[in-house]
């Protein structure tokens, strides 16, 4: 049986995703992306390469954007994980979500969750970033549909709506 990786025993741990504790049982080699999608049914987080190249799987780990395909799930015990499913409050969209929906920030929608999470991380630190900061922040997220311009505008408008809300 050469060339066959023997599958190690599953690990059990509690993962805190969007403020909710999940008991998960999964193979230790699985990435956070795989555990989110396959074991926790959180398919809002997407994958485009599983090699850390496209940014589609960006989630927040302790508030920082990370590529879920490059993080082992076993590293995430006891840490805060935020995904696109945690953005809305009930049926009320997060201001970034409503701005993306209104201003054409989403077309096919496949890169959208990763970009929303990356943008949220930026706006949580800098409530009023300039266009250049936005361009830098999402430069690791590839979008093949929009040409990015309506994404910038959506993030700017989302930031404005967030500031308005916090006043």
């Amino acid at each position: 049986m050469n060339a066959v990786v023997s599958v190690q025993r599953n690990v059990r741990m509690t993962l805190r995703v969007n403020g909710e504790d999940f008991d998960a049982l999964f193979a230790p080699y699985k990435t956070l992306l795989e555990v989110l999608r396959e074991d926790l049914d959180l398919t809002g987080t997407k994958h485009g390469c599983e090699l850390g190249e496209c940014g589609a799987c960006a989630v927040l780990l302790d508030g920082e954007p990370v590529l879920a395909c490059l993080v082992l799930a076993v590293e995430c015990e006891g840490r805060s994980i935020e995904t696109v499913e945690g953005l809305a409050r009930g049926s009320e969209l997060h201001p970034l979500q409503s701005a993306f929906a209104d201003l054409g920030g989403t077309q096919c929608g496949y890169c959208t969750p990763g970009i929303l999470m990356t943008a949220k991380a930026l706006l949580d630190r800098e409530p009023d970033p300039g266009r250049e900061r936005i361009r830098e922040a999402i430069s690791g997220n590839l979008c093949r549909c929009t040409g990015y311009q309506q994404i910038y505008e959506s993030i700017e408008e989302g930031a404005r709506r967030m500031r308005e809300q916090s006043q």
């Binding site: 997407k46 995904t83 953005l87 809305a88 969209l93 929906a101 920030g105 096919c108 929608g109 959208t112």
Partner: peptide, 19 residues
């Protein structure tokens, strides 16, 4: 206008084939 499928896309609820 906000396109009719935009809400589903920004919430991650759009079901692509691998989902």
């Amino acid at each position: 206008r906000r396109r009719v499928d935009a809400r589903s896309k920004v919430t991650g609820l759009t079901r692509f084939a691998d989902d």
